[in-house]
Write a protein that binds this DNA or RNA. Structure first.
Lengths: 335, 335
DNA sequence: GATCTTTATGCAAACGTTTGCAATAGGGCT
DNA sequence: AGCCCTATTGCAAACGTTTGCATAAAGATC
């Protein structure tokens, strides 16, 4: 078993100095003689000493913690299933750590209605990153109004008085449409729910590109949930009722694209000969599927870093604005 | 902006009681008259009051936090890519929350070498759940020896003096092999690295079933990393050098299976006619791939709950032992 | 040698809870 | 009236840091 926990005072006694000196030494305060500092740090290491974070946070009124708030499906309280969002969280985690902060993984269930109260007043975190397309606009709004340091992963073009980081969804939609057209598509189909802000932008970009080629007559929109199952079902249904009246698909996410692909393949629709498909996200699966999936890549690593940096800048009192990540078309076999 | 943060003393003053009464009231302590309790709780709600978690933790010597330690690839410091592990984390999150605890998402990079010191002495968490096949056996061992409350996601058959929760990998391997054989496979191939504990068990179960049918002569093992890319490359290479000298694959994970499937499809090997495939995990993609993937389902929801419950039991001083989760063969088109 | 800097350290208060113990009031009983 | 018992509340200490201010020692300047 473990020996009794050392407190700073014990360490100080061991070193023959006062607690204040020990504290300053561990924090590398230049007020303390270099030599003393090193001696105490060495001693701390030998004894596996660690500061009590609770005490430290109480005294400093800072936690060195960033909370990541994942919007759960409020109906089912389901955990997130979309691999893309989980990847974003994972990359945020790394970025947070690189800055010496810790990551509190939370969700709408824990945080309740008063996010500022829970996280900030409750001294659980210094700031919050919100991830995931929730219907929680109102809660975000009011937390932001209450002065909670906050950055949101979403569509950066959205008008809001809080900071948003996200991809250039409009351009993504445009690129996807241009690509489909360049492949000879005459009757492209958009698969997704444009009411959702990010997807709405993708749809706008998509439509703009389509319109500029004058083929908007033949362009269709199929509103579905952002899951592969929904895409699979929707495409199946559509093929049964309308037949194959489209020759290209732009799916609002890779998971959606893969669901659609499966439905098509089951009915022996050839990809990309009969239907060209473009997805969005570039999750790992996009490269592994057969045929591999052409898609618009979102840079999650950069996203994580940007989200964190902007939040920390806010904590430093800087004025911060929303910003947009570059996206990139990755051509593969499906188109 | 936000009004100045209320402290418990302020709330007490507003209610016309002492701090101690207010504290007890908020914690629903029966020492306080029911009516007073309700009045104070009501008042707290009205003023969006929340207790300072730092102060509370300092006083209580408890954090009500559980840390989840994800073993990063120590070489590349890459974030996790495997959708299955991320799903496990996500389900742990829910289970943790349901118990009224919070989740600190951490990794080997932050925790350093002295996990007990960092998490427990540092009062960052009350206990730790380790996820992910790290080479960190030694660190786990010593943290456990130091008395750190700990549960590990891994292979529960492994001899260890800490508590492990995981699926019945041996049985999973057996089921997979039996299934392949029942489909007429005569020359099955195992895809994965048996040095890894969990995969080793799957391989043992697989071999046992194969041997009982007397076809071990034709059985092959292809050692690869647990990524779809590695599987894709390995199968490609094998087809080129040996030709198609197997008629079934048991992949150590779904991602691996999907990588293998892609390589086969590109060479027009028919699935399941020429080669039957069984994966492991049952990630969302297994159902969406084409053909959909037969696989051994691991129950991540139950895993999350079991991991958390066992950890909390340890915190309550109970004696806890490793345990095994039931798995299930999910038959789909690939076999 | 007296005064002023500079350098290095220690003292003690404060951060906001929780809780053992003491205190008070009210009621029932003899 | 005196006593005990119960129900409810308050006082004050403690959790382990960090930091403004005071102090002490040593060197620099006149």
């Amino acid at each position: 078993m473990h020996q009794k926990k050392l407190k700073l005072a014990d360490l100080a006694k061991l070193a023959g100095v006062s607690t204040s000196t020990a504290s300053r030494a561990l924090n590398d305060n230049p007020l303390i003689k270099q030599e003393t500092r090193e001696r105490i740090q060495q001693l701390a290491k030998e004894h596996n000493f660690s500061l009590n974070a609770a005490a430290s946070r109480l005294r400093l009124q800072k936690t060195k913690v960033i909370a990541v708030l994942i919007n759960l499906d409020s109906e089912t309280e389901q955990s997130i299933d979309d691999p893309f969002l989980l990847k974003v969280v994972s990359d945020i985690n790394l970025a947070v750590n690189r800055q010496g902060y810790e990551l509190l993984l939370s969700n709408s269930f824990m945080a309740g209605d008063d996010w500022h109260g829970y996280f900030i007043d409750g001294r659980r975190a210094d700031g919050v990153i919100v991830v995931g397309q929730g219907k929680q606009q109102a809660l975000i709004e009011s937390a932001s109004k209450a002065g909670m340091p906050l950055v949101v992963w979403g569509d950066p073009k959205t008008e809001a008085d809080y900071v948003i980081v996200g991809s250039d969804n409009y351009l993504g939609g445009k690129l996807a449409a241009d690509h489909l057209i360049s492949r000879g598509c005459k009757a492209p189909l958009f698969l997704g729910e444009p009411e959702h802000a990010e997807i709405g932008e993708r749809y706008s970009g998509f439509c703009a590109a389509i319109a500029s080629k004058g083929i908007e007559e033949e362009c269709q929109l199929l509103k579905i949930d952002i899951t592969s199952q929904a895409a699979y079902d929707a495409i199946n249904l559509k093929l049964r009722s309308d037949g194959l009246d489209f020759d290209g698909i732009f799916a609002c996410s890779d998971m959606v694209a893969l669901g659609a692909m499966k439905a098509l393949k089951e009915r022996y629709v050839s990809i990309p000969n009969d239907v060209h498909i473009v997805g969005f996200d570039d999750i790992a699966m996009a490269d592994v599927s057969f045929p591999s999936l052409t898609t618009i890549r979102q840079d999650t690593k950069q996203a994580g870093e940007l989200l964190v940096n902007k939040l920390l800048a806010q904590l430093d009192g800087e004025q911060v604005v929303s910003s947009q990540l570059a996206i990139k078309l990755v051509e593969r076999q499906s188109s």
